[in-house]
Design a protein around this nucleic acid. Structure first.
Lengths: 211, 211
DNA sequence: TAGATTGTTAATCGATTAACAATC
DNA sequence: TAGATTGTTAATCGATTAACAATC
Protein backbone atom coordinates (compact mmCIF):
# COMPACT_ATOMS: atom_id res chain seq x y z
CA UNK A 1 0.00 0.00 0.00
CA UNK A 2 2.69 2.60 0.89
CA UNK A 3 4.10 4.11 -2.28
CA UNK A 4 7.70 3.83 -1.10
CA UNK A 5 9.72 3.12 1.99
CA UNK A 6 8.13 4.80 4.98
CA UNK A 7 10.43 6.40 7.58
CA UNK A 8 10.08 4.93 11.05
CA UNK A 9 9.21 8.33 12.58
CA UNK A 10 6.16 8.42 10.35
CA UNK A 11 4.98 5.08 11.75
CA UNK A 12 5.60 6.39 15.26
CA UNK A 13 3.41 9.38 14.56
CA UNK A 14 0.65 7.22 13.08
CA UNK A 15 0.56 5.41 16.41
CA UNK A 16 0.27 8.75 18.19
CA UNK A 17 -2.45 9.98 15.85
CA UNK A 18 -4.42 6.82 16.48
CA UNK A 19 -4.13 7.22 20.24
CA UNK A 20 -5.52 10.76 19.98
CA UNK A 21 -8.33 9.72 17.62
CA UNK A 22 -9.50 7.05 20.02
CA UNK A 23 -10.61 9.76 22.42
CA UNK A 24 -12.95 11.31 19.85
CA UNK A 25 -16.31 10.12 18.59
CA UNK A 26 -16.34 8.29 15.27
CA UNK A 27 -18.69 10.79 13.62
CA UNK A 28 -16.57 13.82 14.40
CA UNK A 29 -14.67 15.44 11.54
CA UNK A 30 -11.42 17.24 12.23
CA UNK A 31 -8.81 19.07 10.20
CA UNK A 32 -5.14 18.18 9.99
CA UNK A 33 -4.51 21.27 12.08
CA UNK A 34 -6.80 20.12 14.87
CA UNK A 35 -5.23 16.66 14.92
CA UNK A 36 -1.79 18.25 14.88
CA UNK A 37 -2.59 20.31 17.94
CA UNK A 38 -3.82 17.26 19.83
CA UNK A 39 -0.49 15.50 19.37
CA UNK A 40 1.93 18.42 19.24
CA UNK A 41 2.95 18.55 15.60
CA UNK A 42 1.99 20.57 12.49
CA UNK A 43 -0.83 20.27 9.99
CA UNK A 44 1.61 19.83 7.12
CA UNK A 45 3.22 16.90 8.89
CA UNK A 46 -0.10 15.20 9.54
CA UNK A 47 -1.07 15.45 5.87
CA UNK A 48 2.36 14.36 4.67
CA UNK A 49 2.39 11.35 6.98
CA UNK A 50 -1.04 10.19 5.87
CA UNK A 51 -0.19 10.79 2.22
CA UNK A 52 2.31 7.92 2.37
CA UNK A 53 -0.62 5.56 2.61
CA UNK A 54 -3.44 7.10 0.62
CA UNK A 55 -6.08 9.82 0.56
CA UNK A 56 -8.22 9.69 3.68
CA UNK A 57 -9.53 13.24 3.93
CA UNK A 58 -12.08 15.41 2.20
CA UNK A 59 -10.73 18.71 0.81
CA UNK A 60 -12.46 21.62 2.45
CA UNK A 61 -13.76 19.40 5.26
CA UNK A 62 -11.06 17.40 7.01
CA UNK A 63 -10.89 13.82 8.23
CA UNK A 64 -13.69 11.69 9.60
CA UNK A 65 -12.48 10.27 12.91
CA UNK A 66 -14.07 6.85 12.43
CA UNK A 67 -12.70 6.44 8.93
CA UNK A 68 -9.21 7.60 9.91
CA UNK A 69 -9.11 5.30 12.94
CA UNK A 70 -10.02 2.37 10.73
CA UNK A 71 -7.39 3.23 8.14
CA UNK A 72 -4.55 3.72 10.62
CA UNK A 73 -5.57 0.56 12.46
CA UNK A 74 -5.29 -1.31 9.20
CA UNK A 75 -1.98 0.33 8.24
CA UNK A 76 -0.42 -0.56 11.60
CA UNK A 77 -1.84 -4.08 11.30
CA UNK A 78 -3.72 -3.71 14.57
CA UNK A 79 -6.80 -5.35 13.09
CA UNK A 80 -5.45 -8.68 14.24
CA UNK A 81 -3.92 -10.21 17.34
CA UNK A 82 -0.16 -10.63 17.78
CA UNK A 83 1.10 -13.31 20.13
CA UNK A 84 4.03 -12.28 22.30
CA UNK A 85 6.69 -14.12 24.27
CA UNK A 86 8.42 -12.48 27.22
CA UNK A 87 11.82 -13.67 28.40
CA UNK A 88 13.16 -12.72 31.83
CA UNK A 89 10.68 -12.58 34.68
CA UNK A 90 12.53 -10.13 36.93
CA UNK A 91 10.99 -7.00 38.37
CA UNK A 92 10.65 -5.30 35.01
CA UNK A 93 9.35 -8.40 33.25
CA UNK A 94 6.76 -8.98 35.95
CA UNK A 95 5.64 -5.36 35.73
CA UNK A 96 5.25 -5.57 31.97
CA UNK A 97 3.21 -8.74 32.32
CA UNK A 98 0.82 -6.83 34.55
CA UNK A 99 0.89 -3.67 32.44
CA UNK A 100 -2.49 -2.87 30.86
CA UNK A 101 -0.77 -1.74 27.64
CA UNK A 102 0.29 -5.34 27.15
CA UNK A 103 -3.16 -6.70 27.79
CA UNK A 104 -4.82 -5.32 24.71
CA UNK A 105 -6.55 -7.62 22.30
CA UNK A 106 -3.97 -6.68 19.63
CA UNK A 107 -1.08 -7.91 21.75
CA UNK A 108 -1.27 -10.93 23.96
CA UNK A 109 1.50 -12.55 25.88
CA UNK A 110 1.22 -16.24 25.15
CA UNK A 111 4.40 -17.58 26.76
CA UNK A 112 6.87 -16.55 29.47
CA UNK A 113 10.42 -17.79 29.99
CA UNK A 114 13.18 -17.55 32.57
CA UNK A 115 16.37 -19.45 33.33
CA UNK A 116 15.99 -19.48 37.11
CA UNK A 117 15.03 -23.00 38.30
CA UNK A 118 13.30 -21.34 41.25
CA UNK A 119 10.89 -19.57 38.91
CA UNK A 120 10.37 -22.24 36.26
CA UNK A 121 7.03 -23.95 36.71
CA UNK A 122 5.58 -21.13 38.80
CA UNK A 123 2.63 -19.15 37.44
CA UNK A 124 2.48 -15.42 36.77
CA UNK A 125 -0.53 -13.58 35.41
CA UNK A 126 -2.05 -16.90 34.50
CA UNK A 127 1.00 -18.10 32.53
CA UNK A 128 3.39 -20.87 33.54
CA UNK A 129 7.03 -19.78 33.49
CA UNK A 130 9.01 -22.07 31.19
CA UNK A 131 12.72 -22.76 30.80
CA UNK A 132 14.47 -20.69 28.12
CA UNK A 133 15.51 -23.96 26.48
CA UNK A 134 11.90 -24.43 25.46
CA UNK A 135 11.74 -21.23 23.42
CA UNK A 136 12.42 -22.90 20.06
CA UNK A 137 9.81 -25.51 20.68
CA UNK A 138 7.03 -23.39 22.18
CA UNK A 139 7.03 -20.26 20.00
CA UNK A 140 6.13 -21.90 16.69
CA UNK A 141 3.37 -23.80 18.46
CA UNK A 142 1.69 -20.51 19.45
CA UNK A 143 2.69 -18.78 16.19
CA UNK A 144 4.52 -16.15 18.22
CA UNK A 145 6.25 -13.56 16.03
CA UNK A 146 7.27 -10.96 18.64
CA UNK A 147 9.64 -11.44 21.57
CA UNK A 148 10.22 -9.16 24.55
CA UNK A 149 13.59 -9.34 26.26
CA UNK A 150 13.66 -8.28 29.92
CA UNK A 151 16.71 -10.27 30.96
CA UNK A 152 19.92 -8.85 32.41
CA UNK A 153 22.27 -7.40 29.81
CA UNK A 154 24.58 -10.44 29.86
CA UNK A 155 21.86 -12.83 28.73
CA UNK A 156 20.19 -10.62 26.13
CA UNK A 157 22.20 -11.59 23.04
CA UNK A 158 21.85 -15.30 23.64
CA UNK A 159 18.11 -14.95 24.19
CA UNK A 160 17.83 -12.86 21.04
CA UNK A 161 19.56 -15.64 19.12
CA UNK A 162 17.12 -18.17 20.47
CA UNK A 163 14.12 -15.99 19.64
CA UNK A 164 15.35 -15.53 16.09
CA UNK A 165 15.92 -19.23 15.76
CA UNK A 166 12.37 -19.77 16.99
CA UNK A 167 11.08 -17.72 14.08
CA UNK A 168 10.47 -14.39 15.79
CA UNK A 169 10.33 -11.41 13.38
CA UNK A 170 10.31 -8.57 15.88
CA UNK A 171 12.09 -8.02 19.18
CA UNK A 172 11.50 -5.42 21.86
CA UNK A 173 14.68 -5.26 23.93
CA UNK A 174 14.71 -3.74 27.41
CA UNK A 175 18.17 -5.03 28.32
CA UNK A 176 20.70 -2.17 28.36
CA UNK A 177 23.02 -3.69 25.78
CA UNK A 178 23.49 -3.56 22.01
CA UNK A 179 22.29 -6.81 20.46
CA UNK A 180 22.59 -7.85 16.84
CA UNK A 181 19.92 -9.66 14.88
CA UNK A 182 19.57 -10.63 11.21
CA UNK A 183 18.32 -7.92 8.85
CA UNK A 184 14.93 -9.51 8.43
CA UNK A 185 14.24 -9.17 12.16
CA UNK A 186 12.97 -5.78 13.36
CA UNK A 187 14.63 -4.72 16.61
CA UNK A 188 13.39 -1.96 18.89
CA UNK A 189 15.30 -0.94 22.00
CA UNK A 190 13.88 0.65 25.11
CA UNK A 191 16.55 1.97 27.45
CA UNK A 192 15.44 3.78 30.57
CA UNK A 193 18.95 4.64 31.69
CA UNK A 194 19.61 6.29 28.34
CA UNK A 195 16.48 8.41 28.65
CA UNK A 196 17.63 9.65 32.04
CA UNK A 197 21.11 10.38 30.73
CA UNK A 198 19.62 12.48 27.94
CA UNK A 199 17.66 14.45 30.52
CA UNK A 200 20.85 14.83 32.52
CA UNK A 201 22.62 16.30 29.51
CA UNK A 202 19.90 18.79 28.65
CA UNK A 203 19.38 19.88 32.24
CA UNK A 204 23.07 20.58 32.73
CA UNK A 205 23.04 22.55 29.47
CA UNK A 206 20.13 24.61 30.75
CA UNK A 207 22.08 25.59 33.84
CA UNK A 208 25.02 26.59 31.72
CA UNK A 209 22.73 28.82 29.66
CA UNK A 210 21.44 30.56 32.77
CA UNK A 211 24.87 31.63 33.91
CA UNK B 1 31.58 23.39 25.50
CA UNK B 2 29.61 22.17 22.44
CA UNK B 3 30.31 24.44 19.49
CA UNK B 4 26.64 24.68 18.48
CA UNK B 5 23.31 23.04 19.15
CA UNK B 6 23.76 19.30 19.47
CA UNK B 7 21.08 17.04 17.92
CA UNK B 8 19.38 14.78 20.41
CA UNK B 9 20.37 11.63 18.51
CA UNK B 10 23.99 12.55 19.12
CA UNK B 11 23.37 12.66 22.87
CA UNK B 12 21.60 9.30 22.63
CA UNK B 13 24.64 7.80 20.95
CA UNK B 14 27.01 9.28 23.52
CA UNK B 15 25.05 7.38 26.14
CA UNK B 16 25.41 4.21 24.09
CA UNK B 17 29.15 4.76 23.57
CA UNK B 18 29.60 5.20 27.30
CA UNK B 19 27.73 1.99 28.04
CA UNK B 20 30.04 0.09 25.68
CA UNK B 21 33.20 1.73 27.06
CA UNK B 22 32.29 0.70 30.59
CA UNK B 23 32.90 -2.90 29.63
CA UNK B 24 36.50 -2.20 28.60
CA UNK B 25 39.56 -1.55 30.72
CA UNK B 26 40.60 2.08 31.17
CA UNK B 27 44.03 1.55 29.66
CA UNK B 28 42.78 0.05 26.44
CA UNK B 29 42.96 2.19 23.29
CA UNK B 30 40.43 1.67 20.52
CA UNK B 31 39.70 3.21 17.15
CA UNK B 32 36.45 4.88 16.12
CA UNK B 33 35.85 1.84 13.96
CA UNK B 34 36.16 -0.56 16.88
CA UNK B 35 33.82 1.51 19.02
CA UNK B 36 31.41 1.78 16.11
CA UNK B 37 31.28 -1.99 15.76
CA UNK B 38 30.54 -2.43 19.45
CA UNK B 39 27.45 -0.26 19.24
CA UNK B 40 26.33 -0.85 15.67
CA UNK B 41 27.19 2.37 13.91
CA UNK B 42 30.00 3.70 11.67
CA UNK B 43 33.44 5.11 12.42
CA UNK B 44 32.57 8.39 10.73
CA UNK B 45 29.56 8.81 12.98
CA UNK B 46 31.58 8.15 16.12
CA UNK B 47 34.14 10.78 15.18
CA UNK B 48 31.50 13.28 14.11
CA UNK B 49 29.55 12.84 17.33
CA UNK B 50 32.60 13.33 19.51
CA UNK B 51 33.74 16.31 17.44
CA UNK B 52 30.75 18.28 18.73
CA UNK B 53 32.42 18.39 22.10
CA UNK B 54 36.17 18.48 21.48
CA UNK B 55 39.18 16.44 20.43
CA UNK B 56 39.50 13.33 22.51
CA UNK B 57 41.51 11.02 20.26
CA UNK B 58 45.08 10.65 19.08
CA UNK B 59 45.53 10.59 15.28
CA UNK B 60 47.11 7.34 14.22
CA UNK B 61 46.23 5.72 17.54
CA UNK B 62 42.59 6.02 18.53
CA UNK B 63 40.84 6.79 21.80
CA UNK B 64 41.97 5.88 25.32
CA UNK B 65 39.03 4.17 27.00
CA UNK B 66 39.58 5.77 30.39
CA UNK B 67 39.93 9.27 28.97
CA UNK B 68 36.88 8.89 26.72
CA UNK B 69 34.74 7.54 29.55
CA UNK B 70 35.66 10.50 31.68
CA UNK B 71 34.90 12.99 28.93
CA UNK B 72 31.51 11.51 28.01
CA UNK B 73 30.60 11.21 31.69
CA UNK B 74 31.34 14.90 32.07
CA UNK B 75 29.47 15.86 28.88
CA UNK B 76 26.37 13.96 29.98
CA UNK B 77 26.69 15.50 33.44
CA UNK B 78 26.87 12.08 35.06
CA UNK B 79 29.68 13.21 37.36
CA UNK B 80 27.05 14.27 39.86
CA UNK B 81 23.89 12.87 41.42
CA UNK B 82 20.41 13.79 40.19
CA UNK B 83 17.49 13.50 42.59
CA UNK B 84 14.34 12.03 41.07
CA UNK B 85 10.69 12.06 42.02
CA UNK B 86 8.32 9.35 40.82
CA UNK B 87 4.58 9.92 40.63
CA UNK B 88 2.15 7.02 40.33
CA UNK B 89 2.96 3.87 42.26
CA UNK B 90 1.08 1.38 40.15
CA UNK B 91 2.60 -1.78 38.70
CA UNK B 92 4.91 0.08 36.37
CA UNK B 93 5.93 2.66 38.96
CA UNK B 94 6.70 -0.04 41.50
CA UNK B 95 8.77 -1.92 38.95
CA UNK B 96 10.78 1.17 38.09
CA UNK B 97 11.44 1.82 41.77
CA UNK B 98 12.98 -1.64 42.01
CA UNK B 99 14.78 -1.38 38.67
CA UNK B 100 18.58 -1.44 39.02
CA UNK B 101 18.94 1.19 36.27
CA UNK B 102 17.23 3.63 38.63
CA UNK B 103 19.44 2.76 41.54
CA UNK B 104 22.66 4.17 40.17
CA UNK B 105 24.55 6.77 42.07
CA UNK B 106 23.88 9.26 39.26
CA UNK B 107 20.13 8.93 39.63
CA UNK B 108 18.42 8.49 42.95
CA UNK B 109 14.74 8.49 43.63
CA UNK B 110 14.24 10.78 46.58
CA UNK B 111 10.45 11.02 46.75
CA UNK B 112 7.43 9.00 45.62
CA UNK B 113 3.83 10.19 45.20
CA UNK B 114 0.40 8.73 44.57
CA UNK B 115 -3.18 9.94 44.90
CA UNK B 116 -4.59 6.72 46.33
CA UNK B 117 -5.33 7.16 50.09
CA UNK B 118 -4.77 3.41 50.46
CA UNK B 119 -1.17 3.81 49.34
CA UNK B 120 -0.26 7.14 50.92
CA UNK B 121 1.84 6.63 54.03
CA UNK B 122 2.91 3.12 53.02
CA UNK B 123 6.56 2.42 52.30
CA UNK B 124 8.08 1.15 49.07
CA UNK B 125 11.76 0.52 48.46
CA UNK B 126 12.49 2.44 51.64
CA UNK B 127 10.51 5.52 50.60
CA UNK B 128 7.24 6.70 52.11
CA UNK B 129 4.52 7.29 49.53
CA UNK B 130 3.24 10.86 49.77
CA UNK B 131 0.11 12.59 48.51
CA UNK B 132 0.46 14.30 45.14
CA UNK B 133 -0.60 17.54 46.83
CA UNK B 134 2.78 17.58 48.55
CA UNK B 135 4.78 17.68 45.31
CA UNK B 136 5.27 21.45 45.30
CA UNK B 137 6.43 21.45 48.85
CA UNK B 138 8.68 18.39 48.86
CA UNK B 139 10.58 18.68 45.56
CA UNK B 140 12.41 21.96 46.26
CA UNK B 141 13.37 20.60 49.67
CA UNK B 142 15.26 17.72 48.04
CA UNK B 143 16.41 19.87 45.10
CA UNK B 144 14.69 17.44 42.73
CA UNK B 145 14.99 18.50 39.09
CA UNK B 146 13.68 15.37 37.32
CA UNK B 147 10.20 13.86 37.57
CA UNK B 148 8.99 10.47 36.39
CA UNK B 149 5.31 10.10 35.54
CA UNK B 150 3.87 6.59 35.82
CA UNK B 151 0.26 7.56 36.40
CA UNK B 152 -2.69 6.59 34.22
CA UNK B 153 -3.06 8.73 31.08
CA UNK B 154 -5.90 10.82 32.56
CA UNK B 155 -3.77 12.13 35.41
CA UNK B 156 -0.54 12.74 33.51
CA UNK B 157 -1.08 16.34 32.40
CA UNK B 158 -2.12 17.53 35.83
CA UNK B 159 0.86 15.82 37.43
CA UNK B 160 3.15 17.34 34.82
CA UNK B 161 1.78 20.78 35.70
CA UNK B 162 2.47 20.17 39.36
CA UNK B 163 6.00 18.95 38.66
CA UNK B 164 6.75 22.01 36.55
CA UNK B 165 5.34 24.24 39.26
CA UNK B 166 7.61 22.47 41.73
CA UNK B 167 10.63 23.51 39.68
CA UNK B 168 11.31 20.31 37.77
CA UNK B 169 13.38 20.83 34.59
CA UNK B 170 13.08 17.37 33.04
CA UNK B 171 10.22 14.90 32.84
CA UNK B 172 10.22 11.25 31.84
CA UNK B 173 6.65 10.39 30.90
CA UNK B 174 5.45 6.78 30.77
CA UNK B 175 1.75 7.64 30.54
CA UNK B 176 0.43 6.95 27.03
CA UNK B 177 -0.77 10.48 26.37
CA UNK B 178 0.61 13.67 24.83
CA UNK B 179 1.39 16.18 27.57
CA UNK B 180 2.51 19.77 27.12
CA UNK B 181 5.14 21.50 29.22
CA UNK B 182 6.85 24.89 29.00
CA UNK B 183 9.75 25.19 26.57
CA UNK B 184 12.34 25.32 29.30
CA UNK B 185 11.31 21.87 30.54
CA UNK B 186 12.78 18.88 28.71
CA UNK B 187 10.20 16.16 28.11
CA UNK B 188 10.99 12.58 27.13
CA UNK B 189 8.24 10.07 26.42
CA UNK B 190 8.47 6.31 26.76
CA UNK B 191 5.53 4.52 25.22
CA UNK B 192 5.54 0.74 25.24
CA UNK B 193 2.33 0.39 23.27
CA UNK B 194 3.79 2.56 20.54
CA UNK B 195 6.89 0.38 20.32
CA UNK B 196 4.73 -2.69 19.87
CA UNK B 197 2.61 -0.97 17.24
CA UNK B 198 5.75 -0.10 15.28
CA UNK B 199 6.77 -3.75 15.39
CA UNK B 200 3.29 -4.68 14.25
CA UNK B 201 3.61 -2.38 11.24
CA UNK B 202 7.01 -3.66 10.16
CA UNK B 203 6.10 -7.30 10.67
CA UNK B 204 3.00 -6.99 8.55
CA UNK B 205 5.10 -5.28 5.88
CA UNK B 206 7.53 -8.17 5.95
CA UNK B 207 4.79 -10.65 5.24
CA UNK B 208 3.63 -8.53 2.33
CA UNK B 209 7.15 -8.58 0.95
CA UNK B 210 7.33 -12.37 1.10
CA UNK B 211 4.27 -12.82 -1.07
C1' DT C 1 59.91 7.15 7.60
C1' DA C 2 55.61 4.34 6.68
C1' DG C 3 51.23 3.12 8.54
C1' DA C 4 47.28 4.22 10.97
C1' DT C 5 43.65 6.98 12.50
C1' DT C 6 41.98 11.32 13.84
C1' DG C 7 39.26 15.79 13.09
C1' DT C 8 36.99 18.28 9.63
C1' DT C 9 35.18 19.70 5.28
C1' DA C 10 32.30 18.69 1.34
C1' DA C 11 28.80 15.73 -0.81
C1' DT C 12 24.85 13.16 -0.19
C1' DC C 13 20.77 11.79 1.58
C1' DG C 14 16.38 12.22 3.82
C1' DA C 15 12.93 14.54 6.57
C1' DT C 16 10.40 18.75 7.59
C1' DT C 17 8.24 22.94 6.27
C1' DA C 18 6.00 26.10 3.11
C1' DA C 19 3.10 27.03 -0.54
C1' DC C 20 -0.67 26.36 -3.55
C1' DA C 21 -3.63 24.22 -7.14
C1' DA C 22 -7.36 20.99 -6.75
C1' DT C 23 -11.52 19.89 -4.56
C1' DC C 24 -15.39 19.68 -1.56
C1' DT D 1 -20.27 30.94 -5.42
C1' DA D 2 -17.04 31.80 -1.41
C1' DG D 3 -14.56 29.58 2.19
C1' DA D 4 -12.05 25.90 3.89
C1' DT D 5 -8.91 22.26 3.79
C1' DT D 6 -6.86 18.55 1.39
C1' DG D 7 -2.98 16.24 -1.29
C1' DT D 8 1.25 17.24 -3.42
C1' DT D 9 5.17 19.62 -5.18
C1' DA D 10 9.11 22.58 -4.29
C1' DA D 11 12.19 24.76 -0.93
C1' DT D 12 14.51 24.36 3.21
C1' DC D 13 16.71 22.37 6.79
C1' DG D 14 19.47 19.04 9.17
C1' DA D 15 21.80 14.68 9.73
C1' DT D 16 24.66 11.06 7.73
C1' DT D 17 28.29 9.51 4.84
C1' DA D 18 32.54 9.97 2.25
C1' DA D 19 36.92 11.70 1.62
C1' DC D 20 41.27 13.42 2.91
C1' DA D 21 44.81 16.57 4.90
C1' DA D 22 46.86 16.74 9.38
C1' DT D 23 49.01 14.27 12.92
C1' DC D 24 50.83 10.79 15.89
Amino acid sequence: MPKFKVPEVVVERLSIYLRALKKLSDEHVLSSQELAELVGTTDAQVRKDLAYFGEFGIPGQGYCVGKLKEEITRILALDRSWGLALVGVGKLGAALLAYPGLKRKEFQIKAVFDNDPEKIGKKIEGLTIRAVEEICEVLPRYKIKIGIITTPAEAAQEIANRLVQAGVEGILNFAPVHITVPNKVKLKNVDLSMELEILSYFLSKEIRKER
